[in-house]
Simulated scan of single mutants.
Amino acid sequence: MGIVIRPIEAADIPSVVECIQLAFADDPYHQWAFDTRPGKFNKERNFASLKAKCEWGVQNALFYVAKDTDDRDGKVLGVSMWMKPRSATEKQTWNEWLDEYILWFKQGWNLVRFQGRGGLNTKRYWIWKHEQAIAQSDIWTDPEGYYFCNIVTVRPGIQGKGIGRQLFEIVTSKADEEGRKCYLESSKETPNIAIYEKMGFKLVRNMVCEEGGDKCDLFCMIREPRPKP
């Protein structure tokens, strides 16, 4: 198996969404934010929503896929999407605003097309966004901004081959060159925190999202830039 990490292309998106859905099926945040009971969770609706977000990410994020060079089908083995750092004085561009509007329109069309949100608990989603905003306002103290790891995942069954590390390092090495910090949120304490610590991240906050007696812990971690050897 020869692994190559490269920027996402439009043709990769269906395989990317499949990889994400498989990898996050048992994710604690997914289990908390979605009603995953049979007949409640609409996988097709979720696929359409993720597809729209991926199409936005092609233009607005650092978006990478891992592939096996020997696989003629081109199946995506791993995915990473990072938000670019934005300094405290940097304003949103018109292109960024337009792309966000297009994403909003696509998600609105998905809402009409599938007659619902496919099992997403919107109250819990907004609880998470509220807690995330509080956490980031407290711990994002660098005015130069952070590389924000929105998602890094590897297709189930092929973990332990270093694919996840490569998907991290393509951005963390860039952050080191620029002297910038990185940030992530993990909903799995074990084994994720120990893995991320080996890559230089440190746990700085436990973010708790709670509703109706159910709660989800998200672990906020920051990585300081490492000096060149």
Rank of each mutant, 00 (worst) to 15 (best):
S49H: 11
Q31P: 04
F47P: 00
E18P: 07
S15C: 08
N42K: 13
K40T: 08
Q21P: 07
I8T: 12
A10V: 06
A23Q: 06
A11N: 08
A10S: 15
I13G: 00
L22C: 06
R37T: 05
P28H: 09
E18M: 05
C19E: 00
C19W: 01
P38N: 00
Q31A: 14
E9A: 14
S49P: 02
P28Q: 11
K40R: 15
L22D: 05
I8A: 15
V16Y: 01
F24N: 04
F41G: 02
N42W: 07
A25C: 04
K43M: 03
S49I: 08
F24W: 09
S15A: 13
Y29Q: 11
G39H: 14
D35S: 13
V17H: 06
A48R: 12
N46V: 03
Q21G: 11
D12A: 13
D12T: 07
A48Q: 04
W32T: 03
C19P: 02
N42G: 09
H30S: 14
P14F: 12
L22F: 08
D27Y: 15
D27S: 06
A48W: 02
A23K: 07
N42R: 10
A33C: 14
S15P: 06
E44Y: 10
D27L: 03
F24S: 03
A23V: 11
P14I: 05
I13N: 00
A10G: 04
A10I: 05
C19K: 01
K40V: 07
D26G: 04
W32P: 00
F41C: 04
E18N: 09
I8C: 15
V17K: 02
L22T: 01
K43I: 09
K40A: 10
D12C: 10
Y29S: 12
F34S: 00
I20Q: 02
D35Q: 14
V17G: 00
A48T: 04
H30N: 09
A11H: 15
A11K: 15
S15R: 14
E9M: 12
P38I: 02
P38T: 01
S49C: 07
F34A: 02
A11P: 04
A10E: 14
V16K: 00
N42T: 09
D27P: 04
I20W: 06
G39N: 12
R37S: 11
D27R: 10
L22H: 11
F34I: 01
R45V: 01
K40G: 03
A23I: 07
A23E: 05
A10C: 03
K43C: 03
I20N: 00
Q31I: 14
Y29L: 13
F34C: 11
I20A: 05
L22K: 11
